[in-house]
Amino acid sequence: MHIQATGNVYRAKAVTGIKTVTDILMFGAGGHAAAVSDVIRDIEDFNISGVIDDSPSLQGKCLFGSTVIGGRQQLYMNGLDTMAIFLGIGDNLTRARIARSLGGREFPVLVHPTAHIGTNVSLGEGTVVMPRAIIENGARVGAHCIINNGAVVGHGSVVGDYSHVSGNAVLAGGVNLGERCLIGIGGCVLPNVAIGQDSIVSAGSVANRSAPERHYIMSPGSRIFRRFEK
């Protein structure tokens, strides 16, 4: 296995050549943060030392075995200003915006011990690979991506920054996803198909042809609809 990563890769010690650490800050307190906290729990000698969330109602509460210590302003306090951060934010656009606002911090790459990572795979900083996910030979996954439970990224595929391949979704070989794409639960993108940035393949749908940016792809027939402009 050969992983090229723009951030430190954290996984079980049993995997040769992959770094382990002890402390990390979790940014976010919702469902995705809870799922990522389980990944962190399954990585040896790893600890969530604090939770960052901008909601005043959560401050002081115990979440994920740690305490919500405050909003993002706390990231610049002494002792926290150099600590690694993981963005437990499920929404692609929100995750992208926060990541850009925190430029210069360390964002680790988290790989669950049960995930399979093929040869010559590239993982961008802040990406999480969840339990039983598969990333095949030569695939490139960008920064702050979510490769969710049981998802497959086929050989030679490219996943753009801030994208989310949902649980049990499959990207066949040679697929190219733009930035901030969402492949819904159980969705499938067929070989060599390109999906433009900010596009969505709906849950259970099959994308058998390429689609431009900001479009929905829905089955049957891989129908393509332009997304509503905000």
Rank of each mutant, 00 (worst) to 15 (best):
H2I: 10
Y10F: 15
K13W: 13
A14R: 13
D23C: 03
F27Q: 07
G31W: 07
A34H: 15
A35W: 12
V51H: 01
I52R: 04
D54I: 04
P56M: 09
P56V: 04
S57F: 10
L58A: 07
C62Q: 15
C62K: 15
F64W: 02
T67P: 05
I69P: 01
G71Y: 07
G71S: 05
R72G: 00
Q74P: 02
M77D: 13
M77E: 12
M77Q: 14
N78Y: 11
G79P: 00
T82F: 11
D91K: 12
N92G: 06
R95G: 00
R97N: 13
G103K: 14
G104Q: 13
P113Y: 09
A115R: 03
H116C: 12
H116N: 13
I117W: 01
V121W: 06
S122W: 12
S122P: 01
E125T: 10
V128K: 02
I134P: 00
A139Q: 03
R140H: 12
V141Y: 08
V141S: 03
G150T: 12
G154P: 03
G156W: 09
S157K: 05
V158D: 08
V158S: 07
D161G: 05
G167D: 10
G167M: 11
A169Y: 04
V170Y: 10
L171A: 04
A172R: 14
G178D: 05
G178N: 06
E179V: 06
C181Q: 07
G186N: 06
N192V: 05
I195A: 05
Q197A: 14
D198R: 07
S199M: 04
S199D: 02
V201D: 08
S202L: 14
A203Y: 08
V206S: 14
A207W: 09
R209D: 02
S210Q: 09
P212A: 11
P212T: 08
P212N: 01
P212E: 07
E213W: 01
E213G: 13
Y216L: 13
G221C: 08
E229R: 08
